[in-house]
């Protein structure tokens, strides 16, 4: 009996060893790739920026400049406004799409998916045509005699916001549609029977149930708009820099690679904070729904 037992355990141990070894081999290429191609390069640009007094002098110098403060604040404000507008426009559309018959819904999903899969240059280029000095909007307004001379719409913060909303609205909608589809319509019917008008039902019954979807969408859009390069580059011009265009300008136009690294590290920290918040919120909400 004892012998059998010991044979069994050595067999078992052997199996565990084999399993551990194969798990190790399967994970190795991925781990190495991430460490070598992502962590190493990022650490390599990060380390030199932490030189000097307390290691933060580069960052203090960066943040003391009014110009840089302006860029940082512009980046955050543009991302925030983009998030609010995409949510406001996306929420009604998502409810409408999610409640359609499945054939119509699938068709509308294609309409939403197509822009997501279309190149960002194309989607920003269209706003150059619309907002440009001799663009579609100015031509229209001139013809209707609303204005005497063309407005400067392109190369402004507003143009970046419009472009970002256009870019990220489909992402917000996809995130919201799936959450609206999970709603139990009987709750809304109950609200209606008890005399709640549609608008009240929308704000007091539906939105509270959609918190997870709304937060996920908002954080994805905020992080995306904050780090996007193409839109501020094409629609903002040289005078309306955001963090990502500042990195490129510092490195390629001014040749100041160490300043570019400082901006890059600040942008990483902001992204990690924002996306980390999403994981935290998701976990909190999961726990709450389990407790309920």
């Amino acid at each position: 009996m004892k012998i059998c037992y010991s044979i069994f355990t050595t067999y078992e141990q052997e199996m565990i060893k084999i399993r551990n070894r194969s798990a190790f081999l399967l994970l190795l290429p991925g781990v190495l790739a991430i460490l070598l191609f992502l962590f190493f390069p990022v650490i390599q640009i990060a380390l030199p920026t932490f030189a000097g007094h307390f290691g933060l002098s580069n960052y203090i110098t960066f943040l003391q400049s009014h110009y840089n403060q302006g860029v940082l604040i512009r980046t955050l404000i543009i991302a925030f406004i983009t998030m609010i507008i995409t949510l406001t426009l996306g929420l009604p559309l998502s409810v409408w799409i999610a409640r359609q018959r499945s054939t119509v819904r699938n068709l509308l999903s294609v309409v939403i998916l197509f822009p997501i899969l279309t190149n960002a240059v194309v989607r920003n280029f269209t706003w150059i045509i619309i907002l440009g000095k001799n663009g579609v909007l100015n031509t229209l307004l001139l013809k209707l005699n609303f204005i005497d001379q063309p407005l400067t719409l392109l190369y402004s913060d507003m143009a970046i916001v419009i472009g970002s909303v256009y870019l990220f609205l489909p992402i917000m909608v996809t995130s919201l549609v799936s959450s609206v589809q999970e709603l139990n319509v009987e709750v809304e019917e109950a609200a209606a029977i008890l005399g709640s008008r549609p608008l009240v039902t929308f704000f007091k019954v539906m939105i509270p149930q959609l918190t997870t979807g709304i937060l996920t969408g908002c954080i994805l859009v905020f992080a995306g708009a904050m780090t996007a390069y193409t839109t501020p580059q094409l629609l903002g011009g040289n005078r309306h820099l955001v963090m990502s265009t500042l990195i490129y300008q510092q490195a390629m136009t001014l040749g100041d690679w160490s300043s570019a690294s400082v901006v890059a590290i600040i942008l990483i920290i902001l992204t990690v904070l924002v996306l980390g918040m999403m994981r935290l919120v998701a976990k909190q909400l999961d726990r709450r729904s389990v407790n309920d």
């Binding site: 992502l38 990022v42 890059a264 942008l267 992204t271």
Partner: peptide
């Protein structure tokens, strides 16, 4: 978690 432009920038310097 790393902005795409930073990935390109860091890879250019390291690789």
């Amino acid at each position: 978690f790393i902005p795409e432009i930073v990935i390109g920038f860091a890879l250019y310097q390291a690789m």
